[in-house]
């Protein structure tokens, strides 16, 4: 197991290196940030000074090497717009995004698996059909539209929940979080539900398909022939088998929830990384964009590693590093 993790981490370094090159070149191609940063009245000399100050006068490969050298010592550059280290800017925003993503994933898992099991066990009953119809809606309605509708209904018409922002936060181990105060939770509900909807539909469909398949297997029939209660058959024999694909997808989707919370964060003015990225792209704040993408890549790598480890715990046949007897 330890050898597996070390090998994976070494592979991750290669992936990070390759990604950094790709991102750096890609961002370079977008445009010249000096055009936006500098005031329109500035003369040629001012412009040259600014370019030199930002290090943009050097050739691309040299800029990349400087970036790489500094990155290895933990410095991903200084934001052009805010003049503070980009990584600090992102780390400040990470708790908000993580809390939103974790809540959304939690909602999707805690609702999705039971609903999917139910729909799989009773596919012809009206609740089963209702769940599946609902999941089609979850899939097909665009996130931004659902977000707007949620605001219309719960914030504007009913006035139950705030329409945006993060509200007050409470410190937990020095990290600002929302879920510890009622006011914070009220701010969290709408964006989290909005972000969860698509994943919820996905998990319902996965759980249902897995259940339908597992129910046909001999081991389920054999479990029944042993005289096990229906609850034990479903909650142990079926559930543990359907968890394997679900964990994989949850892992992959958790990464994308973080990376693409952009839409939800923009609609609900949620002060997370996604909103920071959009703002940074607007002003071509290169170091922040690069740092953001590097952080996201690292997160994806870590999540995938965690998924592989959980996967091996769930399925003894892929248990890592275990000698076959």
């Amino acid at each position: 197991m330890a050898a597996f993790i070390i090998r994976r981490l070494l592979q991750s370094v290669l992936v990070l290196g390759f990604m950094s090159l790709l991102v750096f070149v890609g961002v370079y191609a977008i445009g010249n940030p000096v055009d936006i940063l500098i005031s329109p009245q500035a003369d040629q000399a001012d412009m040259a000074r600014a370019i030199a100050a930002l290090g943009l006068d050097q050739p691309l490969w040299q800029q990349y090497l400087i970036f790489l050298k500094q990155a290895l010592s933990g410095d991903l550059g200084r934001s052009f717009a805010y003049s503070i280290p980009a990584i600090q800017l992102i780390l400040e925003r990470i708790p908000a995004t993580l809390e939103l993503a974790l809540t959304a994933t939690g909602i999707a898992v805690l609702l999705g698996i039971p609903l999917g099991l139910w729909a799989g066990l009773a596919p012809d009953s009206w609740p089963g059909k209702l769940i599946m119809t609902g999941s089609i809606l979850g899939f097909s309605l665009p996130t931004f539209w659902v977000g707007l509708m949620l605001i219309m209904l719960f914030a504007v018409e009913l006035g139950w929940l705030p329409s945006g922002g993060r509200g007050p936060t409470t410190e937990l181990f020095g990290i600002p979080v929302s879920f510890l105060s009622w006011e914070g939770i009220r701010h969290l509900i709408l964006p989290a539900v909005n972000l969860a909807l698509f994943k919820l539909a996905l998990i319902i469909r996965l759980a249902r398909a897995g259940t339908r398949e597992a129910l046909l297997q001999d081991y389920v029939k054999f479990a029944r022939a042993k005289g096990l209660s229906e609850a034990r058959v479903v909650c142990v024999h079926v559930a543990k088998n359907i968890m394997i694909p679900i964990v994989t997808v949850i892992g992959l989707e958790f990464g994308s929830v973080i990376a693409f919370a952009v839409v939800t964060e923009s609609i609900f003015a949620w002060p997370g990384m996604g909103k920071l990225l959009i703002d940074s792209i607007n002003v071509l704040d290169r170091p922040v964009i690069v740092a953001y993408l590097m952080v996201i890549v690292s997160l994806f790598i870590l999540i995938n590693l965690a998924v592989d480890i959980i996967y091996s715990l769930l399925d003894p046949r892929v248990r890592i590093g275990e000698a076959k007897t």
Binding site: Y219, A225, K226, H237, L314, D315
Partner: peptide
């Protein structure tokens, strides 16, 4: 009690 035809399928693969 009942014993089934295919022993590769009757035991749950993810339970000890």
């Amino acid at each position: 009690a009942m014993i089934f035809q295919d022993p590769m399928m009757t035991l749950n693969p993810v339970l000890r």
